[in-house]
Design a protein around this nucleic acid. Structure first.
Lengths: 334, 334
DNA sequence: TTGAAAGCGCTAACAC
DNA sequence: GTGTTAGCGCTTTCAA
């Protein structure tokens, strides 16, 4: 590897001429350019990112933090964001934060150091700590969840799909099939997004004229295993429902697997609806809620580009509506 | 945001003292340090990555290129690598190269610019072009496939799982169940890794005393859809096998889904073995080959750290053996 | 214990 | 068209 000084020496020109030849900006005779490019190739030259960035203040990189890359839920979001960013010549770098606030704070810090020009920040749980860091970074960051802090002093954007409405759609679908006892398998109710989903279930039952019984609420952790163990608890409870709304596809899969293992029929014994409409749901024909992840990613990237390239400084938020996708797990004979 | 000069001015010390206070290296009275740290907090100071890197030549970042982040096959690899890198205080940044050589070359270029200290490079297809770029970068790069170029002038490391042996295990398993006609669903035979897998099937059939008939070879593209369409071609062919070896789980799933859709029973009508042993294979009880992805990631990261932290310059390669995991898709009544 | 100064590699304004 | 020069923000040697 080499630098512009070595090239300059080799071709007998000044470093600035070399820089101009390489960048294509500023004057440079075609003869000089030819010699410079030739020498650059010979010396296996490559510019140094750090040096360029130090001057230009541009990295052309966007950091994309994801709590769980193993969850197919995010695949569409990544694609959507990537498609937009690529168009602008931006690189997308994915960071796996492992559902862990320490990792999130670390990555926000990396952004603060201007390792990237902006960030798309996905998290299960926004709180004072990570939101505080987001605000303090003073960098362009887009959340993929709704978040308005009490004091209203935030200055980041967010794009969100209305998960509350998503669970409502799932619950209403089961109610419309005539189910009177509809259980909800969610995440820890302490987490903001989990609580939102729980509320969708509860409110929709009331709207449908049914009774939201908290004994029908089961806390899992969005994994197949937790869906499985919730199924066991549900089946063995004194209060067995006929409809199941799971807060994501993986828990729905766990539920169905338990049923398979114990000779319980889907949808005859339990009608099941998942959420996220991942590839899994096609594979096992699970009725699910399309959360339009790709559009989230797409919009998030666009908001970032507005801030970075057009210098927008005011806050923007975007709401996206989920859609019900009916498959065999919720309707007998379909 | 601010810099060390503003802090220096605020506390009435020189920039170099501020730098020492912040870094903890070099002399600095505790009183000065206290004042500096306080001012840094007030001014919302954060060091600039580019400036640090320009001097130190260290980014503490590793780029991890993956051709298809949507494929669960890589999940274990990411985890393995990440666990090791984290221990060394390194950050892992994932780059989705979308099975596309242009994207790969772009990322190798980003590394060449020293945006990261090293790279784990996963690809479906190594060729002169990307291997040439790897060699030219003169940066620490580990491949997760076997690759020795004809001239033997490579100077990168690789860790690989013996996929050839993996397909052999799958094929032998079916042969041992008494299957005489065993089809192979693979990727494009032009791709190095696909050809390797194909050879495993072919050679194992010969070893098992069976006839490797090229009419039983079907080319897919590692997606569920292609497994589905191969199934259709297989079922409608004049030469219907009883055993199916798929070069990955997704194609096996596609195959099984076609059978489901057409009333064909697994494993009675077709015994199916996939490869990669992903979560999918547990879900649908698919016999598969454990490719020990986590160990690949783990070893790849260790090799990188040896180069970066210990300055190793000689080439190293590591071979890992796959394992057969038997489930219901290949043995009736299991 | 602190400060001055050079330098990392590139950019860009300005002078020639 | 080309060269000189002054930074970008931080690190580190050396002198004080």
């Amino acid at each position: 590897m080499s630098n512009i000084y070595e090239i300059a020496e080799k071709v007998g020109l000044s470093p600035s001429t070399v820089a101009r030849a390489l960048s294509g900006r500023g004057y440079c005779s075609s003869e000089s350019r030819r010699k410079v490019l030739e020498a650059a190739k010979e010396l296996n030259y490559s510019p140094t990112h750090a040096a360029k960035t130090l001057k230009s203040k541009r990295t052309n990189k966007i950091l994309f933090c994801i709590p769980d890359i193993y969850n197919p839920f995010y695949f569409g979001m990544i694609k959507g964001a990537n498609d937009v960013l690529e168009e602008y010549g931006y690189y997308t770098l994915l960071c796996h934060t492992k559902h862990n606030i320490e990792e999130e704070l670390k990555m926000i810090d990396v952004l603060r150091e201007k390792y990237g020009d902006g960030m798309i920040f996905v998290s299960f749980h926004f709180c004072e700590e990570n939101i505080g860091a987001v605000n303090a970074s003073e960098m362009p960051i887009v959340l993929t969840n709704r978040y308005d802090s009490p004091d209203g002093n935030d200055n980041f954007d967010y794009v969100y799909v209305d998960t509350y409405m998503g669970v409502q759609l799932a619950t209403r679908h089961l109610a419309e099939q005539g189910h009177r006892k509809i259980a909800f398998i969610g995440g820890s109710l302490d987490e903001q997004t989990s609580f939102e989903r729980y509320s969708g279930w509860k409110d929709e039952l009331v709207e449908s004229g049914l009774n939201p019984d908290d004994e029908l609420v089961y806390e899992g952790d969005y994994t197949i295993e937790s869906g499985y163990s919730c199924a066991e608890r549900i089946v063995k409870s004194s209060h067995v429902p006929t409809g199941i709304v799971a807060a994501n596809d993986l828990m729905a899969i766990g539920f169905i697997r338990y049923c398979d293992d114990h000779g319980i029929r889907i949808p005859e014994d339990f009608a099941v609806v998942g959420m996220d409409n991942t590839d899994f749901s096609t594979v096992i024909r699970l009725t699910s809620i399309n959360m339009r992840q790709e559009e989230i990613g797409l919009n998030a990237a666009s908001l970032l580009m507005e801030r970075i390239l057009e210098g927008r400084t005011c806050k923007k938020t975007i709401r996206i509506e989920p859609k019900l996708v009916v498959r065999e797990s919720s309707i007998p004979g379909k």
